[in-house]
Design a protein around this nucleic acid. Structure first.
Lengths: 192, 192, 192, 192
DNA sequence: GAATAACCGAGACGGTACGTCAAGTCTTGGT
DNA sequence: ACCAAGACTTGACGTACCGTCTCGGTTATTC
C-alpha cells in the first residue's frame, strides 16, 4: 500500500507542456471566451501539439475545467468578531471571483453545460461552492453562539439564496445598486 | 406622412418558410440541444434553403431567440383572493416554463450568452421577465391593500430573489425539496 | 403571306431592356471574362430583372452569343487588284477581330464550348467564319482568273489553314514574329 | 552541404490519397467534363476529404492540370526509315491524344484558360507540345540528310501548322475527310 | 549504457458545418 | 404580357476545427 498500482514506464508527461496548455487556455478563455476558443488555437498558442492536449483531456470542457481549477485560491474563513463583518467578507470574496472577466466566463460556462453535463458543475460545486458553503456555516454557527442570529437559521439556505442572487446579478445586473449591495440586501432580508 | 418609410419591393418573404424554420428549430432544440444543432440541420428538416435562414437571421442565436419568442405564452395575473395563492400560482407558472426540457435549453442558452451578448438576455428580460415582474407587482400591491404584507415591501426585490433562486435551482437542484418548494421557501423568508 | 404566323399579344418586349442586357454583357465580358461573369451581375449592371434575361435567353452562352453577334461588322470583300493585297487585307481583318481583348474572349469562349455544345460554334461558324470563307473564295477565284495562283488551288483548304494558324497563334503566340506575319507565312507556304 | 534545405515535419502526405484524387478527377473529367465537375464530387468519389484536395491544389485548374500531366505518355520518335512514314506516325500519335474524350477535354480546357491563365497552357506547352516538337525536328532533320525534303525547311514551322490544323479540326471537324487526313493534307502542302 | 516505451511537435487524414455566392424559378406590385 | 425587385430551393464554394493518425525525434526509467 505504499505505492500506487501504477508503474509508468517511458518518458513522463512534460510539466512544461502541461503548463503551456493551461496558460494558453486561460488566456484564450479571457480573450475570446469559451465558445469561440478552439483546441487548435490553444495548441498553437501554447506551441504544443494537438495530440499532447488530447492525451490529457478528452474534451474542451475537461481542459477548461482543469485550467479553471488550477487558478482556484484557498478560501479563508473570515473572523472579524462580528457577524456582518464576516458575511461582508464572504460576499466580497465570492463577488471578487464571480464578477471579473475570467470568473464570468467560468460561471457562464458552468451554467451553460451544467444541465446536460455534470463534469463542469461538479467541479464548480465541489471546488468552489462547497468550501464557501462551509465557511458560511462556520460563520453562522459562530454568530449563533454569539446570539447574533436566531438559532434555527439554516446556513445552507442562506448560502443558496446568496448564490442565487449572485448568479442572477451576474446575468441581469441591478441598475441602482452594486452587485454586492444587492446580494447583501437579500441576505439581510432572509436573516432578519 | 404617417406611413412607414418602407415600401417593400419584390416577392415578399414566405410565411410558410418562416414557420417551417421556427418549427424545425424548436424541434431540434428540444431533441439535441442548442450546441449540437446546426443551421444545416434546421434547413434540412424545414425543407428550406440555408440562404432562406440566413436572409432572416444572421446567427443561430438570433434564430433561436426568435423561435423561443414565438412560443411565449401570455402571462395571466392570478387572482385567488389570497396572497399565497397568487404567489404560488406565479411560482408554478414560472417553474413550468423554466423546468422543462425546452425551457431549460432556452434559459441555459440565454444565460450562456447573456454576459457577452445582449441580444438574448434582452429578449428574455423584456419578453419573459418583465411581464412576470409586473404580475408580481400587481399581486403584491393587491396584498398590501389587503394588509397581507407590510406596505414597504419591494415587489421588484421579491421578484429578483425568486428569479435568482429559480436560476440557482435550475443549475444546482436542491436535494431534499422540489424546486418550487425551495423557491417558495425563499420568498417566505423574505416577506415575513 | 403578308403576316408572320405570330400575333404577339400583350406588352411587347422592351427594346431598352434588351439593349441594356447586351451592353452590360459586353462590358462584363471585356472586363472580367466569360467564366467569371454571372447572369446576376449582368442583371445588376443593366438595371434589369433576372427574369427579363431568362425570358430572352436560356443560358449564359446563348446570351453572350447574341451579344457578340450584335457587334459583328459586315465583311467587305477587298479588291486591291492584286492577290496578295487582297489576302493581306483579309488576314488583317480577321486578325483585328481575333486579337483584341473582346475578340479573344469571344474566340476562347467559342472554343471552350464548341466540342460539347454546338450552340456557340454554330453561330461562330455561320456568322463569322462563313462570310470570311466566301470572301476568301471570291478573292482566290479572282486570282485564278488573273493567273496569279494555280487553278486547282482549294480556297476552302487555304482558308482552313489560315484559320487554324490564327487559332494556334492566339493560344501559343509565336515568339519572333507577329501573328499576322506568321499566318501569312503559312498561307504563302500553301499557295507557293 | 548538398542536402535540400527542407526537412518535412509531421505526417507525410498520403500517396494513396493523392492517387485517389487524380483517379477521381480523371474519371469525372471524362464523364461529365471540366465545367460541370466539382471539387466536392472529386472528394466524394475519391473517398477523400475536401481539405485533402485543397491542401494540394488551390484551384480546380491546378488539380486537373496535375491530373492530366499524370497520364502523359512518353513520346517515341518514330523511325520507319521513310519520311512520310515517320510523319504519319507522329500525326497519328498526336491525333490519338487530341481526338479522344479525355484528350478533347484536356485540350478544350487548355484553350479556354490559355489566354488569361498561363498555368495550364504552360503545362500543355512544355509537357505535351515541346516533346512532340522535338520529335518533329529529329524526323525532319533525318529526312533532310536523306534528301527527302529541302534543307531550308523549318521544322518548327511545320509543327506549328500541323498543330494549328489539329486544333482547328478539333473545333470545326472537316466534313469530307477524317482529321488525320486533313492534317496530313496541310503538312504535304507546306513541305512540297 | 543500451533498450525500451511513452512522450513530444508538427502536420496530414476524413469529416461536419460554416457562411457566401450564383444558379434558375417564382411571386409580388406596378406599368 | 411585360417589367424590376427580390423572394425561393439547390448546390458548390473555400475555410475552420474536429478528433485521429502518422511521422522523426526526445527523454526517463528499466535491464
Amino acid at each position: 500500500m505504499s505505492k500506487d498500482n501504477k508503474k509508468p514506464q517511458g518518458r513522463p508527461r512534460s510539466i512544461a507542456a502541461h503548463q503551456a496548455i493551461l496558460k494558453a487556455a486561460l488566456e484564450l478563455l479571457a480573450e475570446i471566451g469559451y465558445e469561440r476558443m478552439s483546441i487548435e488555437a490553444i495548441a498553437n498558442r501554447g506551441k504544443v501539439g494537438k495530440t499532447t492536449i488530447y492525451r490529457r483531456y478528452s474534451s474542451k470542457e475537461e481542459l477548461v475545467a482543469d485550467a479553471i481549477e488550477s487558478i482556484r485560491e484557498e478560501v479563508v474563513i473570515p473572523d472579524t468578531g462580528n457577524f456582518w463583518g464576516d458575511i461582508d467578507a464572504l460576499i466580497e470574496n465570492a463577488a471578487g471571483i464571480t464578477f471579473n472577466p475570467l470568473g464570468r466566463q467560468a460561471v457562464t460556462m458552468i451554467i451553460s453545460s451544467a444541465s446536460s453535463n455534470s463534469e463542469f458543475a461538479q467541479i464548480y460545486s465541489t471546488k468552489y461552492l462547497q468550501p464557501r458553503r462551509e465557511a458560511f456555516t462556520v460563520v453562522i454557527e459562530r454568530a449563533k453562539s454569539r446570539k447574533e442570529v436566531r438559532v434555527d437559521l439554516d446556513a445552507n439556505f442562506v448560502f443558496d439564496v446568496m448564490s442565487g442572487m449572485m448568479l442572477y446579478g451576474l446575468i441581469f445586473p441591478p441598475i441602482s445598486e452594486s452587485w454586492e449591495e444587492y446580494v447583501r440586501h437579500a441576505v439581510e432580508a432572509i436573516i432578519n
